[in-house]
Nucleic acid binder design. Structure first.
Lengths: 336, 336
DNA sequence: TTGTACGCGTTATCAT
DNA sequence: ATGATAACGCGTACAA
């Protein structure tokens, strides 16, 4: 009973394997009655066509890979939901992989996938000025890739991003409007695409309002909570900014913790605004002003684009960059 | 270039396919030089063994399925991280599926998996008093299942849960200690295993302290935010509880929103404590007292148990229930 | 140490 | 409408 397969079924039903195959694949060339008989019998005997055998024949896996830096993160979790939604509709499986923002893990995973394991890949990248040839090899094997949020500029692929420059500009301008003169920009890696673009919005907004850009106020943080706490504590004590624009949610949280310990009152002493997908931002103390990206939509759009490519049957498709809009929610942390 | 495979490689190298296969599978029966030559040549030609062909031969997919009610949820996201951590070490892929707490989706997905698609399944369930035969069929095919957090009592399988009864008892007792007399219990589905156990801890703690159990104060909520808001608003206005014990994170959030709108002061007018895996509970207004489950460890433990089964080579293994301990964090929302 | 040959379970092609 | 057969790419038993 361990190994029911199409042949055994065929024997038991006194019918050929081809007919059984047809019953399962919606082929029009089959008698309705035989089909029903087969499906009923198959169900009774707990038979389902083996995916791996089918995949081997078809060179199609109905599976796609999702590669993200983190999973336990509101933004990515919601994006994955969006991807899942579309994939489910198409009857596709999702293979999930987390890079922890380590470039080597990304490379190694992609290399593993380079053999028909998946039909396509959706990813938010974890490196920047590196050699991206491992991705070019996918092209050769006709495995399409779609980037979302964090992209590689030098790779030609469909991309879904948000209007980060505009949002950053607007957020910075908002802080300036509330009276901030010394606005610090918090970033995890200012060299990656996202860090760069968001910083440019910040810089240009300062310039527009005649505030000199101060390199010192660009705070390069890490992925380690404790390290960030230390960095930010020093910044708040020594540089005494009056505004914080955080390009990443968790740096805003770290700021909150530091302010609490240093008795710095938000928003009186320090205004804070941050990129964040946190649903309960209004419940924080004080409610956090956020630039909220349409995470779910980024995911579902990316998935849709991937399916467009898969369904284009190799015909060249326009691989352009799609820009979705984030929303600015002004709350109490920035004086709202 | 699209179709490099072991045969073509063999021809190019003037060597047999078996030798190539051996080079890739760590076989001892191969000359070190030949192996190196093969691997180098393969890399150069961007060749990797096709997973589906290997899987078909071996009847092993090196893939496991993770089935959860939600992804964009701190608890499950962290648990998935834990699973991923172990799976990665073992070189396994993870197939992710979200049920949205809809039992039918769970059944349908499991049925799809019932054909060798994955070697094992880790899940947190989405149904209760239903027919679980779809799971028994997995047994027949030797696909092991491990449950975490939300389990089916009637299925024999390894299970990883937390000491919910004790935590609930302690949390309720804590509320009583702070002076609460009318403690409401918020639950999404009081008939599922978790809802039941947590409620029992609540009931028994009340009893121990001579507080009569009031059925009216067991508040059955839904998965819809707006509906919950309505329910809780009515509860707070009409039943006027002085304490809230929430068995689920998001009901605590809903309570916060309602309190804010009704000008109910937490903790002065109402003490709140909740099961929650939110990292930033201390940043809420007021900081939320939580029962925090070791989500990451639940996931990694579940994965470890699954690999124990997979590596036991069919030998019967003891399928017991493992209980991890949650932590109680008393914060300001309950007067801490 | 290396090679030969078969089979894993399915489906597409061709024939009936 | 149904059946026979080859092929997908790999790994292993067996032979050399």
């Amino acid at each position: 009973m361990d190994n029911i397969n199409i042949k055994i079924l065929a024997k038991k039903l006194n019918i050929s394997t081809s007919t059984i195959s047809r019953a399962f694949n919606g082929s029009p060339d089959i008698n309705k009655d035989t089909k029903e008989r087969i499906l009923a019998f198959a169900k009774e005997h707990n038979f389902l066509p083996n995916h791996y055998a089918s995949n081997l024949r078809d060179k199609k896996s109905r599976t796609l890979a999702v590669i993200v830096p983190e999973i336990a993160n509101d933004f990515f979790a919601q994006a994955i939901n969006g991807i899942e939604e579309i994939a489910r509709k198409k009857g596709f499986y999702i293979l999930l992989y987390r890079t922890d923002d380590v470039f080597e893990k990304e490379v190694s995973f992609i290399n593993y996938l380079n053999n028909g394991k998946v039909d396509g890949i959706i990813m938010s990248v974890s490196g920047e000025a590196n050699d991206h040839n491992y991705l070019r090899q996918l092209e050769q094997k006709n495995i399409p890739v779609v980037f979302f949020d964090r992209v590689y500029e030098d790779i030609e692929a469909a991309k879904v991003i948000t209007n980060d420059y505009d949002s950053s500009f607007a957020a910075t301008e908002h802080l300036i409007d509330t009276g901030c003169k010394r606005i610090a920009y918090l970033v995890v890696n200012k060299s990656i695409s996202i860090g760069k673009v968001r910083m440019q919005g910040y810089i240009d907004a300062l310039q527009k309002h005649g505030i000199p850009f101060n390199d010192e106020l660009v705070i390069d943080c890490s992925n380690d909570e404790k390290v960030n706490y230390g960095i930010l504590k020093k910044v708040l004590e020594e540089l005494k900014p009056d505004g914080i624009f955080s390009s990443v949610e968790r740096l805003a949280f770290a700021t909150y913790y530091v302010c609490h310990d240093l008795n710095i009152d938000i928003p009186r002493d320090l205004k804070v605004i941050s990129f964040s997908s946190l649903h309960i931002a209004p419940l924080l103390n004080p409610p956090l002003s956020t630039i909220t990206q349409p995470a779910f939509e980024l995911g579902s759009k990316a998935a849709s684009l991937l399916f467009d490519e898969l369904e284009s049957k190799g015909l060249p498709i326009q691989k352009k960059q799609h820009v979705l809009k984030s929303k600015l929610y002004i709350r109490k942390s920035s004086g709202g």
